[in-house]
Amino acid sequence: MSLITSKKYLMIFKNTWDEYSAYRINFVFWRVRVVLRFLITYFLWSAIYSSQQNYFGYNRQSMLSYVLLTYLVSNFVFATRTQDIGSEINEGRLTNYLLRPINYFTGLIARDISDKFINFIFTVVEFVFLLNIFQPPIFFQTNFNIVVFSIIGFLGSIVIYFYISILLGFIGFWSAEIWGIRFIFMVLLDFFAGTLFPIDILPAIVTKILLFTPFPYMFYFPIKIYLGRLSLNEIILGFGVLCTWIFLLKSLVMIVWNKGLRIYSAEGR
């Protein structure tokens, strides 16, 4: 990427940052929402472990670590501007990007990096605050290789959600009813991605089937690697499925994008 090209995307990064500065109360409300979501799950599990020492093979420390890590991972996975795509198409604002001498997808990545960066800053502050208030038992992984694997899995989870969210936004080319479908996806994600509980506490056959869908690779898989609860074979198999989904989703995004552009009429402009 040339210097001029990188400067363009740096400007997109900066613009996204500035938008957050302009709408800071919205951002604060978004953070309150994220913390609330974490607290509800955290207290739910604390209540369960008040009468149980071990739950489906998870002790209190490993389960609360799982919940805490889900909160951390979700801060990065969900920090995306791709949810705006649907309304940008419906309101004709997509034209603004098409007319500019930039690659639409690289622009999206620049917007997302900015979003993740600002969320990262708030997450660190919140994390320290939550640790001090609730003092949850946290599991620290000391095996360097496992930490590296979990970071790679974590990056994969960001990419998978990025592509799925783009695809949901592209529904806007054909319909104005995007919100409902996105809501259904979020309901499914809550359950099948392992945000409320690790999916391996479900019956074995259900877990096996789910592991072939993209859902567990958004939360469950990287966190399980970090907790050291997956064997090397399971990690390799998981990365295989993860890469396959990334490839499939990327191809699908390009197909849908090309078809969508053919019928895009910049309605609303």
């Binding site: 302009a22 709408y23 109360i25 919205n26 409300f29 978004w30 929402r33 609330l36 209540a47 008040s50």
Partner: peptide, 25 residues
């Protein structure tokens, strides 16, 4: 400029999904 009140409200009410005793901690 506030436009995400709805989402915050939905998450606030999420606290009501479980009984009072869950929050005794």
């Amino acid at each position: 400029n506030l436009f995400n009140i709805d989402e915050l409200f939905t998450h606030l009410t999420g606290l009501s999904r479980y009984p009072l005793e869950v929050f005794r901690y």
